[in-house]
Amino acid sequence: MTSDHPFAEYVRILGKGPKMWRHLTFEEARAAMGMILDGQADPLQIGAFLLLLRRTGETGEELAGMVAAARDCFLDPGVTAEIELDWPSYADRHRQQPWFILAARLLADQGVRILMHGIAGYEDGYAPTRPGLSVFNIPQATSLASAAAAFGSDNLVYVGLENFCPALQSLFELRPLLGVRTAVNTFGRDLNPFRAPHQMQGVFHPPYKPLHLDTVRHLAQQNSMIFKGGGGEVQRNPMKPVLVDALVAGEAVVQEWPAMTGQSVYKWREENLDPAELLRMWQGELDLPVPELAIIGTVAFALKQLEPALTIDAAEKQARHLWQARDKQRF
């Protein structure tokens, strides 16, 4: 008689009948994802596992266990850097310019050390993050070790997932094959490779906010802001009020940020995804009030997280001042 494959245990836990299945514990999720990332699971099992997780609905404990497994598989184990803010960028496609790059650049210029990390996106006319990075001379590291070293010359560094956890990057590439996003697209945002004490997360679907909050709490993250971001990125939508699910010194709070404008459209052509437009925005050559407010509003979020005593109004005023005082000719 042929014995079950070791990974079959985790498929069975999730895939039993309506009254028999259950969620995975932290350690079970860690072990299961560890086997996947280590190449010990069959592709058929991986697809079944990820789709069962999607059908049952992942828990924060499960996602945290999978984050722990991914961290176990980092190519540079033990490498770290003293930074203030973790900035994930894992939206695989969006129809907006990544204005948030200007927000991160502005914060870094004030001395805030930021690690941005993520995937490339798809080459189908959508705007991924990476083309806009070189416009502002943002180092793109080829490993966590080189990212740590790059902070010696810049306060903002980007590293692609494929350069520090390629096995996880390969799971992102299953989306076109499976036809849906999976838990991988969710927990990738929570990796925080350098364990920064502060973290920003933009999500596409608001119902995912409590799930991310529960995930980072299981990971002992003390400070985090999770909100519906433009295109699923860390980018504030200034045209609508924003409810931010936050952890402040480990305590969960909800912050109510008002809309910043009465306008209802960006007044920017979706088809123009040229990164040079980002540079023109920095240089003050574009008159785009709503994207400008998106930048200012995103900076305000970060300022509020880094200094919780700031009121929302004070954070926005400070962010506006920083934007208006930027060196437009720097780049």
Results as ranks from 00 to 15, higher is better:
T142G: 10
A64K: 01
D287T: 12
K209W: 00
P139L: 00
R22M: 08
R54D: 15
W257K: 09
Q255P: 00
G57F: 09
Q324T: 11
P131D: 09
H23V: 04
D92V: 13
W99D: 09
V248S: 06
S224L: 03
G284E: 00
I119C: 12
R195T: 08
R71N: 03
Y266L: 14
L75K: 12
G65M: 09
V234L: 02
L63D: 07
G17S: 12
P128Y: 02
Q45Y: 08
V290G: 03
D109M: 14
L293D: 07
Q201D: 12
G111I: 06
P18Y: 01
P139E: 02
L44S: 13
T2F: 11
A246F: 02
E162T: 11
P241S: 09
L144H: 09
N192L: 04
R269C: 06
A300F: 02
R320L: 13
N272Q: 12
H5M: 02
V299I: 15
C73P: 02
M66W: 03
N163F: 12
Q40H: 11
F194L: 07
A167C: 13
L278N: 04
D72G: 04
P210K: 10
K16L: 12
I36R: 00
A69R: 06
F74Q: 04
A183Y: 04
R30Y: 02
D190G: 01
E277C: 11
T261C: 04
W87T: 06
Q324G: 02
V265F: 10
F331S: 09
M35N: 05
T215W: 06
N163C: 10
L306R: 01
E58N: 12
E277Y: 05
A48K: 10
D287K: 07
P210D: 11
Q318A: 15
L178Y: 07
N185D: 15
M33Q: 12
R320K: 13
L273G: 05
S264H: 12
N163I: 03
Q324W: 09
K267A: 14
V244S: 11
Q263P: 03
L247I: 07
Y10M: 01
A64C: 05
A127C: 13
G229S: 01
Q97S: 14
T186F: 11
I13A: 00
V11H: 00
G15W: 01
A309G: 03
T186H: 10
V290S: 06
G250R: 06
A120S: 14
F331R: 08
H205E: 14
L75P: 00
S146F: 03
G132K: 05
A294C: 10
A32F: 05
A104S: 15
E256N: 13
Q40W: 03
N272V: 14
Y158E: 02
R269S: 11
R54Y: 10
I13C: 00
F49L: 08
D4Y: 08
W21D: 08
N185V: 00
N155V: 02
G60V: 03
S3Q: 13
Q201M: 15
A315N: 04
M281Q: 05
A29R: 02
A41Y: 05
Y90V: 10
L322D: 08
Q318G: 07
A276R: 13
D327T: 00
T56V: 14
I119K: 02
V290P: 07
Y208K: 10
Q199A: 06
A148T: 08
A48W: 07
F7D: 10
L191P: 08
E292C: 09
P6C: 05
